[in-house]
Design a protein around this nucleic acid. Structure first.
Lengths: 251, 251
DNA sequence: TAGATTGTTAATCGATTAACAATC
DNA sequence: TAGATTGTTAATCGATTAACAATC
């Protein structure tokens, strides 16, 4: 671990960012946190929370590793990157580790999001209860179709697109969950950015190109399906259960 | 490229599987195709189809690389693994390459799938038009709620769960798209396997454990959200647009 | 104490990128 | 022919795993 960017390994509840030298010459950006590490975090958190709920006090990487089928050392490093720290023999205190991971992921207090596009998918995400566990609060939806506008059965509101910019400004919502038809995606995404939103969770099949500063994350069903269908068509030969790599805790 | 498992690099429209030595002593399974390669395939195919539709005849890896922001050599290797082959100076013929990739992914002729759980998410996937491009035909949905059973506005049918096993047998459908509540997921997934289905595309937040032979692919929203929210909360520091790794072509 | 476990440094492994000869 | 491009072998890079000293 020779790199200089891993300095403040130990801030109590959150390693603030993957950039140790944010004060350096802006020359080159320091390497960000490895994506595989970030992807494993939710699995850790889910398990740790479940164990904490069962009344458990501490965990070791060995426990986690067994439960998840991963290498203990890998987990140790991941937890370190997330700002967790444990003690020899006993392991990590759940009461410290869980908040550390939550803080690290930015899931400590919910951030708010708007769903854009109130079709079936948009409504599914608008109403999905599971996001609360992931620090996400979906507060409302927007749609251009006047018939969709109003209040849903579950008490969430659907606004006309024309109100987006105004509500983004007033409420300070930074995250858009994009659920419009593929053909409209690029234009709508640009509108979201123009309205002041910073993050786009893209559930459409379109690949977006967006201005500086926007963060896009695609739920790419085609990718996922490629793995699944390839493995499915070749699973006869290769004995045994074969688990494709995962792609996203869901509705 | 020293390994013995890459023998039949050249079957015309599909390298049949990642297992060169399926006839070997069953001792150890030969390494499967790299998942990153598989994940990039849909992006290639999408672009190639678009260019073919524009009337283009051939492409070079350089073209693809520029369009996708990848290294040309990487693409060359990927295409090779998928059974594509080109000519120096001219590149790859689209009329050969597109079917090669389609065959490789198993997207040449649609395979059929059932949606399990006819909530908003299930209906979104049942009606999504984009799957046709990915070799997937969603033929019907199943739900335990009698109020959901019937024919949807778009002419697709929703059957009671009790009919699942019978219809799986009669129609030979192998793939289940799981859209039930998280708490029901494990039991329903087992029922799908018991009914004879082989592949599970898991859109729930539950992590499933299934019998030998079942292929599971998760759409793991938590993973995806972890990347997005972490990057979002640290994007101020690191200048520039930051594109999270993708996770799935979608509704 | 003895042993489980952390933190850390070194080795391995696999995927990406670079280099280059072959070819149309 | 000259030059773009493929196919392929070697080098790099990053992530995972192994080894081990420190510690409670």
């Amino acid at each position: 671990m020779p790199d200089g960017w891993m300095t403040d390994t130990r801030s109590d509840h959150a390693r603030p960012c993957g950039h140790g030298g944010c004060d350096e010459k802006a020359g080159m950006s320091t390497p960000p946190l490895p994506a595989p590490t970030l992807r494993r975090m939710p699995a850790y958190l889910r398990l740790l929370r479940a164990w904490e709920a069962e009344g458990r006090d501490t965990v070791s990487c060995t426990h986690l590793a067994e439960a998840l089928g991963l290498d203990p050392t890998l987990i140790r490093k991941d937890l370190q990157l997330a700002g967790g720290s444990g003690r020899p023999k006993t392991g990590y205190r759940l009461s410290e580790l869980v908040p550390a991971l939550e803080g690290f992921l930015g899931w400590s207090r919910p951030s708010e999001a708007f769903v854009i596009g109130a079709g079936n998918l948009g409504l599914a995400l608008l109403h999905y209860q599971g996001f609360a566990a992931h620090g996400l609060s979906v507060v409302a939806a927007f749609d251009d179709d006047a018939r969709k506008v109003g209040t849903t059965g579950l008490g969430k509101r659907v606004f006309p697109m024309a109100k987006l910019a105004d509500l983004v400004q007033r409420m300070g919502v930074r995250l858009a969950i994009l659920c419009v038809p593929d053909a409209a995606a690029q234009a709508v995404a640009e509108a979201c950015c123009a309205a002041g939103m910073r993050g786009l969770w893209n559930f459409t099949g379109a690949r977006l190109s967006l201005p500086e500063g926007a963060v896009v994350e695609d739920i790419d069903l085609a990718q996922s399906l490629a793995l699944l269908s390839h493995r499915l068509s070749h699973s006869l030969a290769a004995g045994g259960r074969r688990r494709s790599e995962p792609t996203g805790t869901a509705p």
